[in-house]
Write a protein that binds this DNA or RNA. Structure first.
Length: 424
RNA sequence: GUGGCCGUAGCUCAGUUGGUUAGAGCGCCGGGUUGUGAUCCCGGAGGCCGGGGGUUCGAGUCCCCUCGGCCACCCCA
């Protein structure tokens, strides 16, 4: 909500992500990094902003470049844009660095799209993804899909559907689009009015319309899979065979078209059925065999996917899985003298690898004990005037009724360690 | 960009047909005899009722504008 005129809040569609949420995101990114490393992928960091031309290559006709980019002119009069997605930047990096192929990378970070926010959609959002450049082998498609699948399984998501399709090579698609357009033009008056002008500009987009009227027309439409060349067909068959061999369930969806113009060949999406919301695609990707060339590189096949972190976590919430990790401290140091002991002992505990915290501002013992209890710490280390004078500390178990023990200050770390429960 | 719903304490909300100093729960701070928590009891801080304008003797309550939030379309992760 808007506050006083002289205060600020996050821009529309952005938010502050605090402790529990950020810890969860870090955990997800750790899982992803592990799986990527197991499959031989290295992390690639590209700039948050690039020359706007890099992103314009993802499709002059797409909304993403037409009206959703955060564009600006820098002080050197260069036209720049905040990155709206990851693939184009990875291809730019490939062209610039010319690594040996196959080049297998993964990336993570914030992306930006100027859209009206809604469930699972923000202006600054977070994606984790991979790209493989330089191999047209269908087994790469399988490997990439398997990686996404592994991550989805590891966060505990079970109600997820993998749908795949092949939209063929450009020639296949041109033939298909021609037939599709003819079909749609013949049924123009049956289509939902909102979809009619797409027939001329983006007939493929009509296929995934949500309008009931349009859907019934689309149900009878010719399917792309009937227009694939023998080569595309064989590739797609090999992908299906591979997924079957790895035990990854999937469904073929001939109407699955993806929104970015650079896609060709295999396309796929993981859809979370736990999400009632309109944004149930938690991961989407596919092949793009012409993008590197468009960015000034040699003809190079590529494939990759992007996972929407925000949506993935929404799906986890809906399934009640992947809770935020514990970030409780193990020991709370209560010091009712002048705070110097708390200062020194928390430092000592931390240096010994034990998570420790304390109260500040000379709170009363009662207040400090309350804080200790609330913190979730298993133990309280207590120092009063008596302990200080005797060079001792009291250690008390929290979260249960117990007596406290008195130990020499020099033995504190060892005693604390022995009283702490085994790390999980 | 279009449409629907909504905007009262840090959080979740209540505020009767417009009527005196705007409430609750949770949270926070302090206290319940001098140094001990999670229960209980007492007390306290904290709101120009998102902002601006209007109607009225009087507006958190009605009207307009604006900003913001949520959701949907569109698009996409």
């Amino acid at each position: 909500m808007s506050k006083k005129a002289n205060s600020f809040q996050t821009p529309i569609g952005t938010r502050d992500i605090q402790a529990d949420d950020s810890a969860r995101r870090r955990a997800l990114s750790t899982i992803f990094a592990e799986e990527a490393a197991l499959a031989g992928y290295g992390e690639l960091e590209t700039p948050i902003f690039e020359d706007i031309g890099v992103f314009q290559r993802i499709g002059e006709g797409t909304d993403v470049v037409r009206k959703e980019m955060y564009e600006f002119t820098d002080k050197g009069d260069r036209r720049m844009a905040l990155r709206p997605e990851g693939t184009a930047a990875v291809c730019r990096a490939f062209v610039q660095q010319r690594p040996t192929t196959p080049w297998k990378v993964w990336y993570q970070g914030p992306f930006f799209r100027y859209e009206a926010p809604q469930a699972g959609r923000y202006r600054q959002f977070s994606q984790i993804g991979t790209e493989v450049l330089g191999s047209a082998d269908a087994d790469v498609d399988v490997e990439v899909i398997a990686l996404a699948s592994r991550v989805i399984n590891r966060v505990g998501l079970s109600r997820v559907l993998l749908v795949i399709n092949s939209i063929g090579e450009p020639e296949d698609r041109r033939n298909y689009v021609e037939v599709l357009r003819e079909y749609l033009e013949g049924q123009m008056d049956q289509l939902d009015p909102a979809d009619r002008d797409k027939v001329a500009t983006h007939p493929l987009r009509v296929l995934d319309s949500k309008k009931a009227a349009t859907r019934s027309v689309v149900d009878g439409a010719p399917v792309i899979t009937d227009f694939l060349s023998a080569e595309s067909r064989a590739h797609f068959d090999r992908v299906q065979e591979g997924l079957g061999a790895l035990g990854i369930p999937f469904a073929i969806e001939p109407r699955l078209v993806r929104g970015l113009d650079y896609y060709s060949g295999t396309t796929f999406e993981f859809q979370a059925s736990a999400l009632e919301a309109a944004q149930n695609t938690i991961c989407g990707g596919g092949r793009y065999n012409g993008l590197v060339e468009q960015l000034g590189g040699p003809p190079t096949p590529g494939i990759g996917f992007a996972m929407g972190v925000d949506r993935l976590l929404l799906a986890c919430d809906a399934e009640g899985t992947f809770p935020a990790p514990d970030r409780q401290v193990e020991v709370w140091v209560v010091d009712v003298t002048d705070g110097a002991s708390a200062r020194d002992l928390t430092h000592l505990l931390r240096a010994s690898g034990i998570a420790a915290d304390r109260s500040f501002d000379s709170r009363s013992m009662r207040s400090q004990m309350k804080a200790a209890d609330r913190s979730g710490a298993a133990l309280a280390v207590i120092i009063g005037d008596q302990e200080l004078a005797d060079d001792m500390v009291a250690i008390r178990r929290l979260r249960e009724i117990s007596d406290q023990i008195l130990v020499p200050r020099s033995e504190m770390v060892d005693r604390v360690r022995s009283m702490l429960p085994e790390p999980a």
